[in-house]
Amino acid sequence: MKPIKTAVSLLLFTFTVSAKAIPLLNGLAVEQQFNKDLYIAAVYSETLTDETAILLNGNAPRRLEVRVIANSLPARRFRNQWMEAIAINNRSDTLSSQAESMLTFANLFKGRFLRGDRLAVEFAADTGITRIALNGITLGEINDADFYNTLLLAWIGPVPPSTGFRDGLLSAGEVDSGLLSTYEALEPSSERIAELQLKQISLEEALTTEAPVAEEILPKPTLEVAALPPPTLALVPNPATATPNPASAAASPATGNEDVEPAATPTVELSQAKPDTTEAPAADREEDMEEEETPLTADLILARQIYHSALLRHTFRSIRYPKRAQERGHEGSVRLNVVINARGEVQEIVAVQESRYSSLNREAIAAVERAGPYPAVPPQLGSDRFSFTLPITFDIPD
């Protein structure tokens, strides 16, 4: 039985603020990992649409919103996943030009999100400023007219968290009534709001009383990233579909599985998939313990994004499409978390989300194993291991 759809109409948003119409709810999508709902994402726009280009219109006020379903979600984990998606869906020149803005954005996320938390990212078309707020409390502002679209493309760009996630946000106001009810019911407690207000006051007081530090004591670190591969998988003019290099696929070692052949004809595009019940990867378990991390800089963020994109391209050349899955019309998506050591050797592969077909799930893992060893972790990152998300969708073209 198909879920009941509710058309989000103008009646829900008839009031105005400062003589400007509040953007309409264009769509909702749920982020799931390890068979658990983490949060509901929402996209608001002045015009209800199923077209990405219209939502990227910089002349209209728009808003992204996240409402947390999980009892606890590490802010660093949430931030890192968003930054990875930004790297995949934006061009290299965009990443370079907005490195400082991304640093500002990344540094806003501390501690943990709790169930009911509402994170809002609002773009003001008249000023070009993007405002980030948690439960109504402003965390920061970014004065860059293009930055909002950089964030939005991570959700609705050519390589979204999943095709279903993107489709939900591009539903032109037609959202599932049950999901809408859940979304509207999620709100922070008064105690949570008071806690955040106290933290914000303490932070502001610390910033106003902190003694200035001389530039010569803390020089701006620089990282040589020019030698790394191009930092994005988003190709121009049509980045939505990437096809493995047939020569590279043919050169991959044989698996002995008669159901597997090089994926030269069927398209294998990057995305995510259905939830999995496997234990969380080591990288996420470490984040849950909130261990200290290297202080972020704009150069470090850019270097990570460049390296992550290179790792995805490296894996992509090793992906094959199981022959029987093609013959039976089996399609699906898989999202893996991969951990490598400093030499690029694979240390861990965990399925964050799986497709409904075991042959596709096995092939995704096999592709990582064939791809190893990966390019070594750049010394600029200052780490002896690197964890990255690998989203793969097996899709047979029409």
Rank of each mutant, 00 (worst) to 15 (best):
P239I: 03
K274I: 00
L198M: 14
S202K: 06
T208I: 13
T222V: 12
I193V: 14
D276W: 01
A240V: 13
A234G: 04
E215W: 00
T241G: 03
E224V: 04
A234I: 01
P221G: 03
E291W: 00
P237G: 05
P253M: 05
A234H: 01
S190H: 10
I193A: 10
L235Q: 12
R192S: 14
A211Q: 05
E290A: 15
I217C: 02
L207H: 00
A280D: 00
E191G: 02
E215C: 11
P229Y: 05
V236E: 13
A234V: 08
E279P: 11
N257V: 11
E290W: 04
P244S: 09
T241H: 07
S271Y: 06
L203E: 07
E210A: 15
A251L: 13
E216W: 07
I217Y: 03
A214V: 10
A264I: 11
N245H: 05
Q197L: 10
V225L: 15
E191K: 11
P253V: 05
Q197H: 01
L300T: 02
V225F: 12
P219E: 07
D299N: 13
R285I: 15
L198C: 04
Q200N: 14
Q197Y: 01
T243Y: 05
A264E: 09
E216H: 09
L207N: 09
S248V: 10
I193L: 09
P229R: 04
